[in-house]
Design a protein around this nucleic acid. Sequence first.
DNA 1: TAGTGGTCTAGACCACCAT
DNA 2: TGGTGGTCTAGACCACTAT
Lengths: 260, 260
Amino acid sequence: MTRESPTENEQPSRRLARELRGQITAGDLAPGDKLPSERALAAEHGVARNTAREAVRLLADEGLVTAEHGRGVFVRGKNRLMRFGQRRYARTLRRETGLSPYRAEVEAQGRTPRVECTSITRITPAPEIAERLGIDPEAETVVRRENWYYADEEPMQVGVTYSPWHIVEGTPVADSAKMGKGSLYARFEEQGYAITSIREEVTARMPTPSEVAGLAIPDGVPVLDVTHTGYDEHGRPFEVTVFVMRADFNALDYRMSVED
Amino acid sequence: MTRESPTENEQPSRRLARELRGQITAGDLAPGDKLPSERALAAEHGVARNTAREAVRLLADEGLVTAEHGRGVFVRGKNRLMRFGQRRYARTLRRETGLSPYRAEVEAQGRTPRVECTSITRITPAPEIAERLGIDPEAETVVRRENWYYADEEPMQVGVTYSPWHIVEGTPVADSAKMGKGSLYARFEEQGYAITSIREEVTARMPTPSEVAGLAIPDGVPVLDVTHTGYDEHGRPFEVTVFVMRADFNALDYRMSVED
DNA sequence: TAGTGGTCTAGACCACCAT
DNA sequence: TGGTGGTCTAGACCACTAT
């Protein structure tokens, strides 16, 4: 599969990257190990520092190493993945643990979860949101609720939930002071909107500069972009949540039957 | 959300990147437009060529532009997404159209699909595969079937299917000459394995060098990595397929009910 | 303070593309 | 052929980290 033999006329930066990659995959450089400094690599291999730097950049783009300013370049470990699927919304999970699915998943990994609602505003929905909520964006406003999800104080995900104003007006969903414990979906259920079916549209992309800053995303790590729509027992959509997750820490796990 | 105001002490490369990004998002530079050459950008903004180049690299990493050797740097258009979900496996789709779900999706977009099976081999499965197939990797071999998916001759996905030898021995699944038309799942069904439920584990990552080469993936485009397991009516797994898809052309669309 | 990565300069040559 | 991006050199200064 992966061809790792030297090519003729191979460029110095590629050659150096290939050598380092080999040491990483062979285990000579283990996760957490520090690579030689760019200056040392340059001297040892008889290239300019910028060339050694380019080699390191290639590895960073592949997600194999992470550079830390002033400290060095380190081999990235395999990260524990948090897996989220439709069980995220299961009622039994909420009833048995009293925990939101995010908290349950993080605690299961022995880490400390924290969820912070950073803003609740009332806005005119973007067309994509209004379309999924089945409302007229010019006639109805929505409540926009931004949640940040941390594990051991490291940011993992951002979720922005949109819900029609007429559904959440006066409820805890629209007022952080009244949210209480447990899942957002418990609050929806109390308002008569029990989540019964969902749609999840998944894609991946590189993070925007503000996402890099907000989620502290290292180089070479993409994000999963999940647009989730929740439907009640009558098939009516009542909330859309756009999740942005670090792809190196998060995965999705769906199990479903195949319809005829 | 996105902060695009100049910062004090902003670095020249970031400043130039921000200006170009602004022109792109404002529409002054439309999809398909060519950016000024690196040398022109450098001269116009009074920076070294390497600095202009760094600015372009930042935009490429965000997926906003693509550099084409010898031609120039171009603004990337929004790509049509092909959406795949559990309907991919629905029997009615196979029966009504006689097409594989991939072909159906691509034709629906007015493009020309092609699927090529590049290799069929019999191997000892990797532990992750054996685990999902519920077999002992030391006691049983699997058939490995590699399929490449194209749209207008542009590679979109690779899918590698693993199935226990005892299930596919002597069947068209293990012999490309006998495959015939239609979906692989039609062939499985003929062998008594009707796909009834599925599990899909989704994550995203940057492509490996060989994936970059094989799928012709531009800079700054991640891949979706989907491990799919197919189960028959008795809940027994009979095939695992690992899909690698360009994230800028592919999306996943799942609809499912939430269990109690 | 010494060592690290981050950025920048001002050149050079090469590989690719269109004309 | 001229213009483009791709790479490389050999320096320089800055920002961050650890001691």
